[in-house]
């Protein structure tokens, strides 16, 4: 039984260069979609506080819908439906960034919302008393107070998104998992590639999560004092 488990170091070494070059794709897609999510999430959070109830309601419904459907299906939708129905052909990378970015913008909108709700109501009133426009109130008063405490949580979502990127191999994006699958299927031997990919994820995400936790405790101490 156990004799089948013979770890092949030569095979592993052959795989590693493929993995590290694909890591660039993984990291690029992570940061690009995080940027989309940061902006999209903020936009959604602001729309949910729009003065027009219709807009606020639509934004809320959009968040609810995206949050309760799987990322992989959304990626399929963007990658396979857009070219046929809207005549918009997207590369796997672009489609992946849009799908992952929009999916997590709905999560980040909740994060922003908690930060915005935590800003004292008096701040809105003071801004109004000072004759600030709605936009000025957001940009100069509310967001500068709401966002800094959220940084650790946002960092957490960056890690979560990093771990979600393998899903994009479903739309043929050649990130580390896609490369591992392709490499393994040539000889039908997945032990080494899949294990190495798992280790790489652990190696990158665990220290990052420790960093986020550290930032969190420091922030809490700052606010506590």
């Amino acid at each position: 039984m156990w004799n089948r488990l013979d770890w092949d170091w030569d095979y592993t070494m052959q795989f590693l260069p493929h993995m590290f070059s694909a890591l660039k794709v993984t990291i690029a897609v992570t940061f690009a979609s995080f940027a989309v999510a940061l902006i999209g999430g903020l936009l959604l959070a602001m729309l949910r506080r729009a003065r027009y109830k219709g807009i606020a309601y639509l934004a809320g419904a959009f968040v609810e819908f995206i949050r309760s459907t799987p990322l992989i299906v959304q990626a399929f939708f963007i990658f396979y439906v857009f070219p046929i129905s809207f005549n918009l052909v997207l590369s796997p990378f672009t489609a992946g960034v849009i799908a992952l970015g929009i999916h997590y913008s709905t999560y980040l909108s909740e994060v922003y919302r908690s930060g915005i709700d935590a800003v004292d109501k008096g701040q809105w009133e003071a801004a109004k008393a000072l004759n600030f426009s709605r936009m000025q109130t957001w940009m100069r008063i509310i967001l500068p107070q709401a966002i800094p405490p959220l940084i650790p949580v946002l960092g957490n979502y960056l890690i979560v998104m990093f771990k979600e990127t393998p899903i994009l191999s479903a739309i043929t994006l050649m990130e580390i998992m896609g490369v591992a699958k392709q490499f393994g299927s040539a000889s039908w031997r997945f032990l080494e590639p899949v294990t190495m990919v798992g280790l790489l994820f652990l190696l990158l995400s665990y220290p990052s999560s420790l960093l986020v936790r550290y930032a969190e405790t420091r922030l809490n101490r700052q606010r506590g004092s």
Partner: peptide, 12 residues
């Protein structure tokens, strides 16, 4: 478990 991703675990 939390440090690797679900898809990797599924494959594994």
């Amino acid at each position: 478990i939390r440090g690797t991703s679900l898809l990797v675990q599924l494959f594994w």
